[in-house]
Design a protein around this nucleic acid. Structure first.
Length: 546
DNA sequence: TTAGGGTTAG
């Protein structure tokens, strides 16, 4: 029989990377156990692993699961997940995390220095702690890698494949490719089951994003060196990565090279067709479609939707109608993704009434809207200035049993910020927390922008600490936003300090950002500061070459 | 892990 403590621990573990935020079912069960203060009876406890499996197999965004959940949440005063883990499991609230963060936040010049700084700090590392720190510093490879190295040396602690994968990704993101490879090799030597397709997908994606397409392909060719199978799934991932990172040509080359060795499916062709469409190479997409048919595969809803997306991008809505007609003739039903793309494009093209007609058509075809669909709808409505309608849809999502995800919240927050409605925006941020919906960078961007333009420095400070608390790591775009925003509001000193922080993290400011700041310093005759910024920029560019 | 996600500009 499992103790209550063990049950809660099980519930609080994040089941997978795919669901970094706590599954609402788990959340709910935790609360039931905590608030009722009853020890669960034996049958329930024995059943728990099965229940967990069931919960995790449910997509929390699916429609059918939520109505009952929503009313549960209404009727029970839910604790925030962090409160559960702190108070019920008797763990200290966040002090270890804060302690390490304080050390990591100081700008150390190298991972070695980070290790030195961490040495002697009395913290016991756990897997949860490591995951959180790596998330928190995921755009900051020096402290992340330093922490990782330090943790590895702690007695009684061992990194999981997940933390290894996280660091592989962080290094790849910062284009520290040789360090990244060293780590992959280390993983494999440590345990030949540590390196998986998940690991290698990250490697391939990061290489491709860095423009190293051939290296990504080479990684695939060499997969078996790490005991990872070179199967259709791996090939699809590689092709998808290449196509998404702007080289569908490489994806096609991969297809040609391996099509005789790996079983093809409609997915193989769909990846390519989507890639060609995205690259606006319609003729090639068409050719691949012909090839698909030759191999005996009929175009499916994914295939058609890729073409629809292409015509939406071209704002050729007549062609979209043609394709929809063809789908109907072939008995291929559009789904919620198809409708979302079409509606969103019409909305963006300022044809809001046409967009709403798509919504009506979808409903009449018995296709249920999902979270993403509603988010899109809210977006186009607020873009069209129909705030009341947007708000209504946002409220209605709950009643329809559809979870409100980050995107829906982000849209609402951005819309409030665009209208300088500080209070509304912050209330939404708070509501998000209560909904245990984790904010991301896009949540904060409009808020940060607003606090810069309104010269609300206290709010800015609050937001930055809020971000840290939520493990949202600041990246180039956010810094650019802060530097420009503060510069425009005449907060030059602060603007400069963010510029400096950005460079110290190895990020390269955009020329436009740099120019704006320098010109402003010039205008205010702040020669010294200007010199400092020029020096930093030169330094940043130098680092880029190395 | 085949398709949907908003510009950082006045």
């Amino acid at each position: 029989m499992l103790s209550k403590h063990t049950i809660l621990k099980l519930l609080l573990q994040s089941p997978s990377q795919k669901q970094p935020k706590i599954n609402p079912f788990r959340h709910l069960l935790c609360n039931l156990l905590c608030t009722k203060n009853e020890s669960p009876n034996t049958t329930e406890s024995a059943e728990l692993p099965n229940w967990l499996k069931f919960f995790d197999s449910q997509n929390p965004e699916e429609n059918f699961v939520i109505p009952s959940l929503a009313s549960w949440v209404e009727n029970h005063k839910l604790l925030h997940p962090s409160e559960i883990s702190c108070h019920v499991l008797g763990e200290k609230p966040d002090t270890d995390v804060d302690k390490i963060s304080e050390i990591l936040k100081k700008r150390h010049p190298s991972p070695d220095k980070v290790v030195q700084a961490l040495d002697g700090c009395s913290v016991t590392v756990s897997n949860g702690l490591a995951e959180q720190m790596l998330r928190r510093f995921s755009n900051d490879w020096v402290p992340a890698f330093g922490f990782f190295t330090w943790a590895k040396a702690q007695t009684g602690y061992r990194h999981t494949p997940e933390t290894y994968n996280a660091v592989v990704d962080i290094l790849g993101k910062s284009k520290k490719f040789s360090l990244m490879w060293e780590l992959v090799n280390e993983m494999y030597e440590l345990n030949n089951e540590y390196v998986t397709l998940t690991t290698m997908s990250k490697v391939m994606r990061r290489l491709a994003r860095g423009g190293r397409y051939d290296d990504a392909v080479e990684t695939f060719r060499d997969l078996e060196r790490y005991d990872v199978k070179k199967d259709a799934m791996a090939m699809h991932i590689l092709m998808d990565v290449l196509a998404k990172e702007n080289s569908v040509e490489h994806a096609y080359k991969v297809f040609l090279e391996f099509k005789g060795r790996v079983p093809l499916s409609s997915q193989t062709f769909n990846v390519l067709i989507h890639g060609w469409c995205k690259a606006r190479k319609l003729e090639d997409a068409q050719k691949t479609l012909d090839e698909m048919k030759k191999h005996g595969f009929s175009p499916d809803v994914v295939t058609y939707t890729s073409f629809i997306e292409h015509y939406c991008r071209e704002k050729d809505f007549r062609k979209v109608d043609d394709i929809l007609k063809e789908m109907q003739e072939k008995g291929c039903k559009p789904n919620v993704v198809t409708y979302t793309i079409f509606m969103h494009a019409l909305g963006k093209a300022k044809q809001i009434n046409e967009a709403l007609k798509v919504y009506e058509k979808m409903k009449s075809n018995g296709c249920l809207p999902d979270t993403s669909f509603y988010s899109s709808l809210i977006f186009i409505l607020s873009q069209a200035g129909r705030l009341k309608d947007a708000n209504e849809i946002f409220e209605d999502m709950k009643n329809q049993g559809v979870m409100r995800d980050v995107m829906a919240y982000n849209t609402m927050i951005a819309s409030a910020c665009a209208r300088s409605q500080e209070e509304t925006a912050l209330k939404l941020l708070q509501q998000m927390e209560e909904d245990s919906c984790k904010p991301d960078l896009k949540t904060y961007a409009p808020l940060l922008k607003m606090s810069c333009s309104k010269k609300r420095m206290k709010l800015l400070k609050f937001l930055l600490s809020h971000m840290l608390k939520n493990d949202v790591s600041i990246e180039v775009g956010t810094y650019a936003l802060l530097v420009r925003g503060l510069c425009k509001s005449g907060k030059l000193e602060l603007s400069c300090s963010f510029f400096e922080e950005m460079v110290s993290k190895g990020m390269i400011p955009k020329d436009s950002t740099y120019k704006m700041l320098v010109e402003e310093l010039e205008r205010k005759s702040l020669a010294k500061a200007k010199e400092q910024i020029e020096m930093l920029m030169a330094q940043a560019k130098e680092n880029e070459i190395v």
